[in-house]
């Protein structure tokens, strides 16, 4: 690691000021940031640790779940309130990495990082979440821009994420057997207004919505309804773990499983 100045501000206003410095970097759980700094892929002049801001906690009220940006994966997975409101989201958090990573990593860090194989982006997109920062609110569609790329401006801090409560939802993850990240992950959410389906791990441009599945499932919410719908392999990733055609196949399989398991 290259040297840096470490700050743990006590207020959001101070954090914003510090994070606005030219080469400053925000740190949440550090589960992604510290490994990148060790590899010298990141060399921030200043680290602004958000752990002193108290941005954690989960509230469920009037059809919405609000999760503070600094809420750890383990606390999302273990929240009794969330398990009742959106069980799929709690289960998703419990599938991230391993117990030690879940004790430290945060939802805000995961969403800000926008790893194309990360789990949370699919939930944000399928549930139609709102990402709230120190300056504005964004829909998940506007927030996720591409591979490791979001609409966040330098120094902008996510404070919380708001999820509408669906009628039913489920997340199915086909894991890379070594890293346990998603080779394909499909989040299906059924609302009174229609069904939303988001796919992570597969797209060469990051998380995306599967519109054909959505249209068919909105008419008939059953695995059968999407059985015959082909997922194109164009613009899907190919790597040593799975080629694009296999990923395309997995998207159909995972989506059908998610529909069947939705509750």
């Amino acid at each position: 690691m290259y040297p840096f100045n470490y700050h743990r501000p006590g207020t959001l206003a101070d954090a914003v000021k510090l994070a606005g410095a030219d080469e400053a970097k925000i740190m949440a759980g550090g589960m992604t940031l510290l490994p990148t700094m060790k590899q010298r892929l990141a060399a921030p002049s200043d680290i602004v640790d958000l752990n002193g801001l108290g941005l954690s906690g989960i509230t469920v009220a009037s059809g919405k779940v609000t999760i503070g940006a600094m809420t750890r994966h383990a606390d999302v997975a273990g929240s009794a309130e969330l398990q009742k409101a959106i069980p799929a989201l709690a289960e998703l958090a419990g599938m991230i990495g391993d117990p030690m990573v879940r004790h430290r990593g945060t939802i805000g860090g995961s969403v800000a990082n926008d790893d194309p194989a990360a789990d949370y982006p699919s939930a944000c997109l399928a549930l139609g979440a709102t990402i709230v920062t120190n300056t504005r609110e964004m829909s998940a569609e506007d927030f996720f821009v591409g591979l490791f790329e979001t609409a966040l401006q330098p120094g902008e801090i996510i404070t919380k994420i708001i999820f509408p409560v669906p009628e039913k939802a489920n997340y199915q993850k086909f894991r890379n057997p070594a890293s346990r990240y998603a080779i394909v992950g499909v989040f299906v959410a059924k609302f009174a207004s229609g069904v939303r389906v988001a796919v992570t791990g597969a797209g060469s441009g990051g998380v995306f919505r599967q519109n054909d599945f959505e249209a068919a499932l909105s008419k008939d919410f059953s695995a059968k309804a999407i059985e015959g719908i082909a997922q194109s392999a164009d613009s899907l990733n190919s790597d040593i773990h799975a080629d694009a055609a296999y990923r395309a196949h997995l998207i159909g399989v995972m989506a059908r499983r998610a529909v069947e398991a939705a509750r």
Binding site: Y6, R8, M27, G30, M31, L34, P35, I47, D49, N51, A74, P99, M100, V101, H103, R104
Partner: peptide, 20 residues
């Protein structure tokens, strides 16, 4: 792996200052 305030964490990926 060590316990930080009772929870297991990977101490190779924690800054000592951050757990002051």
């Amino acid at each position: 792996t060590v316990h930080v305030n009772g929870e297991a964490m990977k101490s190779c990926t924690l800054l000592a200052v951050a757990v002051d």
